[in-house]
Amino acid sequence: MMDALTLKDALFWAFAFLTVGFGLMVTFHRSLVHAALGLMGTLLSVACIYGLLDADFVAVTQIIVYVGGVLILFLFGVFLTRRIDDIEVSNLSVNWMVAVPAGLVLLAVILYAVISSPLPMAPVDATGPTVEGIGNEFLSRYLLPFEVLSVILLAVLVGALMMARRELKPEERD
């Protein structure tokens, strides 16, 4: 007989290590395609941690948006780039003199935020369905941020289209 808490803890640590491991792969693998796959591993492990924390909606949305959408478009772009498999050019570490201090500063800020914020450490016992609650909150209390975000995304979409069109125009004139 296995105690439920220890099984959950074991899974949590396993996924935590997977997240970090895949994250290192993203950073250090020389091939861009492998780095993208490492990113897939990271995103999936994070989704599994969300699932373990009973945040099923967040977990599923994470997979739909990032693994099923964003990352595929990443790969799509990478495949269309020339010489991506050439390890000499694809995923080089450039400007590490700037990158390392910047990373350390970011790490410090995040650590400070995590340590100083009062996170509830007690387990939440009432973990029922979350979808309905999230939907209701979006369309009542958080309606304005929700709508503003959708308008921003729409603007991004239109902007991307404009930029793509502008690059096409000179060719059409020929």
Binding site: L37, D56, F57, V60, G69, I72, F79, T130, V131
Partner: peptide, 24 residues
């Protein structure tokens, strides 16, 4: 799962990787 249909979309959407990476 309470998120049943969304789960199907999440997992089903990962089927793209097989075709994409296989070809590449």
């Amino acid at each position: 799962l309470d998120t049943g249909v969304l789960f199907i979309f999440a997992i089903g959407g990962m089927g793209i990787y097989g075709a994409t990476l296989g070809g590449w």
